[in-house]
Design a binder for these strands. Sequence first.
DNA 1: CGTCGACCTGGACT
DNA 2: TAGTCCAGGTCGA
Length: 308
Amino acid sequence: MIHELPVGSSFNLAAIPKLGQDFRWRKLDDYWYSVVLSGNLIHVWQEGSVLKYKTDSGSNLNSLLSSYFRLCDPIDEIYVDISRDAKLANLVTKYHPGVRLLRQDPWECMVAYICSAPNSVRGITTCVEKIAVGIGQPIEMGRDERYAFPRPEEVLRAGLPRINGLDLGLKRANHIIAAAKRISECKVGFAELAKRDASYKEIVWVLMQKSSASRKAANGIGNKVADCIALFAFDKMEAFPVDRNIARALADMYDDCPPLPKNSNGSLTDKQYTDIANWARNRFGKYACYVNQLLFHKQRLGSNSNPS
DNA sequence: CGTCGACCTGGACT
DNA sequence: TAGTCCAGGTCGA
């Protein structure tokens, strides 16, 4: 059974897996893409302004996909708005349609971005896949065999030794266990936090709180990772994640952007981070987060002939 | 508060 | 083949 979802003319499926936001997309052939969302294996292709897809369960997932792709965002209006900046207008011409924001599951997003520091997009994809294959349940459709991303309870049941055995590097296993505990033990779940219209600052504050059990225990969520989660999973459009790519792009393009007196290792101090983010919010307006993605996209595709 | 180094892993490049 | 560098940072001294 093939389902259909109208996506309008400003949509390019082929660009979605390259956004570096969600790491569970796979290209199957020239037309089909495979993705696992909320335990569903979905095969998708685009035909003009319509997305066609089938699912392993056969069920219609239009509302899930509409939310995931943020089809309610006024995408054309957004790109008109940010095109007031001539430099950005050039980028819009070059990369639009394609650069969009996705709305992810908070838990999966948390884990993925815990794995992002300091890691490449390829490396993050590998980490996420290791977790799914190692802990999650298999799902298959045709010849495509994928794995559902394990829920926090499954991760806790697996335990630290097994997560450690996945060789995720750094202390990612510890941070992921901590995140699973926080979500499953929290009286107020993260999803509820979003529904309650928690502010951007509240979300970031909660995310960056060290785990309560041992108050000082690191959780692998700093400034930048918290911003990514706030933006990609909690609808906080005020978030402006500043990573190496973004900092570089801004420094290259804008003379008046705050300078980047880098740390010896190349990372930003807290103050530099907030200065840059605030500058960007002021400069780019209410759709700064889309500018953020546009710049990230440009930086990755521009500086590396084969970004993956 | 600002600064600095350590840190796992895997791919790309020499 | 082996050595080197770097990747969407975070943490703690």
